[in-house]
């Protein structure tokens, strides 16, 4: 994935789209107050300077799907593991809730389910049947909308063709009006996400930790 911070407006559409797509339960004010709110994707903000010379930058942060992911080796049950196509997958049925992975993750993108999710009826009708619900004691995180990736791959296979560049859109990418988020195949040098990843504006979050994250952030330009 690539995130162009020069396009990002900080609106938060991606945050709500992620909740809607991935059946992320809201926890309510009381639980949110003690740090248990779950946002697989958040928009961070960085203030610079003091009034009146003040600036603010937005950075959308989701699981960076690291190639050398600190969350994976610490998991005693292989719930947190690497897939063949390079995703950091979380197998909820294997997770026993040690929370080691959340402690190891430098990006703070793993969220623990402190209780069973509930939806006050009939809010449960909004649930996406393609995404499993997580029960108490399980760690959950951004999957790059793996259900959409697999769905598109299956569709392409049924039509006996390759997946087209840009055909797979995670919910956050789909919702973004400014097109700040771009998703695609980094292994394909011709894809748009590969092209953006070669931009001189590109960098990765906390790259010096050696996590080899797979989200490229294209920095905001300043006007010369």
């Amino acid at each position: 994935m690539a995130a162009d911070l020069d396009r990002c407006t900080g609106c938060g559409a991606c945050v709500v789209a992620c909740h809607a797509e991935n059946n992320i339960s809201t926890v309510g004010a009381g639980q949110a107050a003690i740090g248990r709110a779950k946002h697989w994707l958040r928009v961070e903000r960085y203030w610079e300077g003091d009034f009146p010379n003040v600036g603010l930058k937005f950075v959308p942060v989701m699981c960076q799907q690291c190639d050398n992911a600190p969350c994976e080796p610490v998991c005693p049950t292989y719930a947190s593991h690497h897939t063949e196509d390079g995703l950091n997958a979380q197998v909820y049925n294997r997770c026993i809730g040690t929370r080691y992975c959340a402690n190891a993750c430098p990006y703070n993108v793993r969220f623990f389910d402190f209780f069973n999710p509930s939806w006050e009826k009939p809010l449960q009708l909004q649930l996406n049947p393609d995404v499993s619900l997580r029960e108490v004691g399980v760690m959950e995180k951004c999957t790059f909308c793996v259900q959409r990736i697999r769905g598109t791959q299956i569709q392409a296979k049924a039509e006996d063709r390759e997946v087209r560049d840009g055909e797979i859109q995670p919910a956050c990418v789909q919702s973004c009006g400014a097109r700040a988020l771009v998703f695609g195949d980094l292994a394909d040098p011709e894809s748009e996400v590969s092209r953006l990843s070669r931009s001189p504006r590109g960098s990765k979050l906390l790259e010096d930790l050696g996590t080899q994250p797979k989200v490229n952030y294209l920095s905001r330009q300043s006007q010369a």
């Binding site: 609106c11 938060g12 559409a13 945050v15 709500v16 789209a17 809607a20 797509e21 009708l125 909004q126 649930l127 996406n128 049947p129 919910a171 789909q174 919702s175 973004c176 009006g177 400014a178």
Partner: peptide
């Protein structure tokens, strides 16, 4: 049942995008 709202890709106003409020309208 409606499951998810997304911006209509060909709509001349929003061209596929949708704001957080629109996402939550469901």
């Amino acid at each position: 049942a409606a499951k998810k709202l997304e911006g209509a890709p060909d709509h001349p106003v929003n061209r596929g995008g949708l704001c957080p409020r629109g996402q939550a309208a469901i």
